[in-house]
Amino acid sequence: MRRARTWLPGLLLVTPSIVAIGVFVYGMLGWNFRLAMTDKHDEVSEGKFVGLKNFVDIWDLPRWHLSVQHTIMFTLVFVLGALVLGWFLAFLMEKGVRGEGTFRAIYLFPMAISFVATGIVWRWLMNSGMEQRAVGLNRLFDWIGLPQWQWFRDPDWGMAAMALPAVWQMSGYVMALFLAGFRGVPEELREAARVDGCNEWGVYRYVVLPMLRPVTLSALIILGHISLKVFDLIVAVSGKQIITDVPAVFMWVAVFDSHDPAKGATIASYIVLSVAIFVIPYLIWSVRKERRS
């Protein structure tokens, strides 16, 4: 144990940040949970402690059920879509192609744009007008003989369409992660497998794929936590419409339109919990892994 004199200055230097994170992250998360456990359903009342009542009651709201279902569908399509497309693009480039830098730059640039700007162009692309009034993809589909549909206004599959802009925006990032993963597999390992009589598919299946697992996990965590809190994109594409409601938009409405802090805090708590459930184990796992190496 080194003496306090050697480490104390360091601790002092990070103290402002510790205090800031303590108050703004942990303090406020706690404050939010406490608010969610009160009956402060308007802005003036004191708010009595009611335990988990709000957490139970919210399941009586059809709108909440809808927003949860929407998030599930959005998450499935977005996470799988971005993962598969990102992996596929990396797979195509893995062995090196001419102009790789250009390809990478084009697939990645959507990440530099805000979801709000993205949403504007995708709202036009996914306009639900048909036949004479069709613009965007419906008009394009008409030309090439594909069926037109309602896109994000489709009552059953609307959220799958809503995930398309998100896939467009994030699959380049996943590609970059996977490409780094592919390149991290030592060539000798592949060569050794080939010498042992593996064909290319076998090399891929038994040598490369297992080594991509950590990258896949990181990508899953990143995409998953973006998906569960998705907000900007939904607002930019369709505003506050119920047909594309998600918890984050519902919370916004609860705070600003219904002026119901307790309800807003309850929804926010559910969003935090849904993310924490898989992020905390992931963080513990990655910190342990780092310490081992």
């Binding site: 990070v14 940040s17 510790i18 994170i21 703004f24 992250v25 942990y26 303090g27 406020m28 998360l29 404050w31 939010n32 608010l35 936590h225 569960l228 809190k229 907000f231 918890p247 984050a248 919370m251 705070v255 802090p261 807003g264 805090a265 929804i267 926010a268 708590s269 969003i271 935090v272 993310v275 924490a276 992020v279 905390i280 963080l283 513990i284 910190v287």
Partner: peptide, 19 residues
């Protein structure tokens, strides 16, 4: 401390917005 910081990176900001 570092781990605690890292968690701050992942929290959905909705969870702190009202406070």
């Amino acid at each position: 401390l570092f781990t605690l910081f890292l968690f701050g990176m992942f929290i959905p900001y909705q969870g702190v917005m009202i406070p």
